[in-house]
Simulated assay, not measured.
Amino acid sequence: MEDSAAPKRSVTVADVAKAAKVSKATAARVLGGYGVVSDKIRDQVVAAAAALEYRPNELARSMSTGRSGIIGVVVGDIQNAFFSLAVRGISDMARLAGFTVIIANSGEQLDAEISAVDLLIGKRVDGLIVTPAHCDRIDHLRQVRRAGVPLVLFDRNIPELEVDAVTGDDREAAIAATRCMVEQGHRRLAYVSAMEAEGGKLADIGRISNSAVRERVEGFVQVLTEAGLPNPVHYVRLGATDQPQTDDVVKRLLSDSAPPTALLASDSLVGLRVFKSLQSLGLSIPKDISMISFLDADWTSVTVPPITIVDQRVYEMGKLAGERLIARIEQIPLTAERLQINTTLVMRGSVARVGP
């Protein structure tokens, strides 16, 4: 009696060819997606493959075609809705082009990012999309370039690397949000970020290694300087990496001799933490303090009042990054450039007018 528990033999290209009544070479062309065959023959092979439940040997296909059909993506924090939306956009674009996506999470830690890049290169990915944790420590990304693997940066820009980068218009977005608060009479404004920094205070904008954060802080400071407000970096606070740290950042801000009357949160996770911190202190938005957050995350529209946000159109950013990488994989001649997606300030009820 045949052992029903015995493993089933893998269906081969030869099996499909026999069932479709074509040569093995013709079946391989159809299943591998290369070469030219008639529609009738293609339909025969596809039907036979489906009937036999044929599954391609990806390693063998990569050896014969020089491609794995896989795109690697390294993001900063998959828990952050920003990166979740981006990955959805990348994955949707990749699927349409016939690629599979492998996702790695760096946690915004350089060592984890380097390990993830090495692992994905070892998997023979056809291209990489990376959100660099530090824009000033890029030897591993230079190695990707030297290996000839197409690379697209996401959310962060490194001009000296001479690769495509898909970002938001970070400086202009921060200018619009800050200007909104200034126009409502606010003169003491804080910027809160999860970027780690010794002591939690900003010493030198130019040394911020995350290009997105740096450009947002530059936009924030520009508006305060233009408004003639003294010491515009005084209320720029870093280190809101988790809820306890954010609680500490907010408490120190509010214990200042002249506490801020408005806050700009650098991303939706920071914004939610800041919101919870203010709630725990019994403060009301915008009666006691005004607030704007980056990203139209779900939580921002269900609070009372809803939070004014910078709509970053992250899904579109992800689709554009995927599209650009696929163009590079297909060797379409393009000049390396920074592709910026415009943001929009969506006014809700979290910014109050103060003063006369």
Rank of each mutant, 00 (worst) to 15 (best):
A352T: 04
V302S: 11
K18V: 10
S10C: 13
A133C: 10
S106V: 06
R42D: 09
D247G: 12
I326A: 03
R188M: 08
N80C: 08
Q340I: 09
L269S: 06
K40Y: 12
V351H: 01
G168Y: 01
L224S: 02
P159D: 11
P244D: 12
I205H: 02
D267A: 07
Q279T: 14
S91W: 03
I307S: 06
V166H: 01
G239I: 07
Y34A: 07
I205C: 03
I129R: 00
R348K: 14
K8V: 15
I71L: 14
T241K: 15
G127I: 00
G228P: 05
L119G: 10
A174K: 01
D3Q: 07
D247W: 12
A240T: 07
E226K: 12
A28R: 04
D136P: 07
N342C: 13
F82W: 04
R9D: 10
V314I: 15
A336F: 08
I102R: 02
R145H: 07
G32F: 09
V45L: 08
E316I: 10
V152Q: 01
N57S: 13
R95M: 11
G271A: 09
I70W: 06
P286A: 10
L202I: 08
S84M: 12
M347H: 15
L161K: 03
V74Y: 02
L85P: 00
N105Y: 07
H140S: 11
G349W: 02
D77P: 06
I309W: 03
G349H: 02
A47I: 05
A212Q: 05
R42V: 08
